[in-house]
């Protein structure tokens, strides 16, 4: 019925513990536990929720309960934050096992991770750190993606980063690096449009040119978020990927361009600090949903009426 939602149709389906809620064409929000009572009380909701995988990797307790309650009623996207796929050192096997067990437990509609790293030796830095784009890092990152995909038995979506520095040793553009990763590993892509805008501003290139070079045919999810402003050493604008406010107008405009080309790809509003009351976050998702629905009619005539 919904061909975009079930990428594993070729495999024998495991016994599902949760309904296979379709995620195609939907807008969603990051799940914040302070919003849980409002979300559970609101039965009219349409959309999906994305959770940061690491928050649900304890042995049990309220996080497991909250995730199960949300997963029963909504599509869930599982977003890993600290696999360190973009790092040079081997993946943390214990972490990979936890990740797999969480994928098995919550049967998410989407699974994603970052083109970044956060652990070096044994220190976890809790930030999405950048990497140079070279043939050596390409091979290493591709190995890591393959390892994750083999462990969990399904493809992941890889997210483009927001960055503040460059590596003089880089020999490839970010879009070329990402394109080759998708080709080599079969992974899908999570296009963070705010990250595109932040990086383009910070590095002095055009966001539209970046998007024109980006392999949009591999995009399985989009992220939108707010950013903050600082200045660099030269006094020029430096944007910070802060996730602490509404999506900027310039990012909404880029988003419409992307949806116009990709069709109604599931879209997430991220808001991770200075978290507002639920209606404010929900309103951002409703705005994204309106754009998705508009293009849904354009891409698949009559489908907006047919879908639930």
């Amino acid at each position: 019925m919904n061909e975009l939602a079930i990428p594993l149709a070729a495999h024998p389906l495991p016994a599902l513990r949760f309904p296979a809620h379709p995620i195609a064409g939907l807008a969603g929000t990051s799940l914040k536990h302070e919003h849980l009572p409002s979300i559970l009380a609101d039965e009219t909701q349409r959309g999906f929720f994305e959770v940061h995988a690491e928050n649900y990797m304890g042995a049990g307790g309220p996080p497991h309960d909250a995730l199960a309650r949300i997963r029963r009623d909504y599509p869930v996207s599982l977003h890993g934050v600290c696999m360190s796929i973009g790092g040079p050192q081997p993946l943390d096997k214990a972490h990979l096992a936890r990740f797999k067990s969480l994928v098995d437990r919550c049967e998410p509609a989407l699974v994603s991770e970052h083109l970044a790293w956060s652990t070096h030796n044994t220190t976890y830095f809790n930030d999405l750190l950048p990497l140079p784009y070279t043939p050596a890092t390409l091979a290493r990152v591709a190995d890591h993606i393959n390892e994750v995909q083999e462990a969990i038995g399904r493809p992941i979506l890889l997210e483009n980063p927001s960055t503040y520095v460059v590596f003089p040793e880089s020999t490839m553009s970010e879009t070329e690096f990402i394109r080759q990763l998708a080709q080599r590993t079969g992974c899908g892509l999570l296009l963070d449009v705010n990250n595109v805008f932040v990086s383009a501003t910070n590095h002095g290139y055009s966001a539209r040119t970046y998007l024109a070079d980006f392999p949009l045919n591999h995009v399985g999810e989009i992220h939108l978020a707010g950013h903050a402003s600082q200045t660099d050493d030269e006094g020029d604008l430096l944007l910070i990927d802060s996730h602490d406010g509404p999506v900027a107008n310039a990012v909404w405009i880029l988003y419409e361009i992307v949806i116009g080309q990709c069709g109604p790809v599931p879209t997430l509003i991220e808001w991770d600090s200075a978290i507002p009351d639920w209606p404010i976050l929900k309103a951002e998702a409703i705005a994204a949903q309106a754009i998705l629905d508009h293009h849904s009619q354009k891409f698949m005539p009559g489908r907006a009426n047919a879908a639930r």
Partner: peptide, 25 residues
């Protein structure tokens, strides 16, 4: 290993990561 783009300095840019790490922890 890092710099700013187009010959720019990296001090304040690198400080973004430094700040993210310390403040988030």
């Amino acid at each position: 290993v890092v710099s700013g783009p187009n010959g720019k300095a990296a001090a304040k840019r690198y400080n973004v990561y430094r700040n993210n790490v310390t403040v988030s922890l």
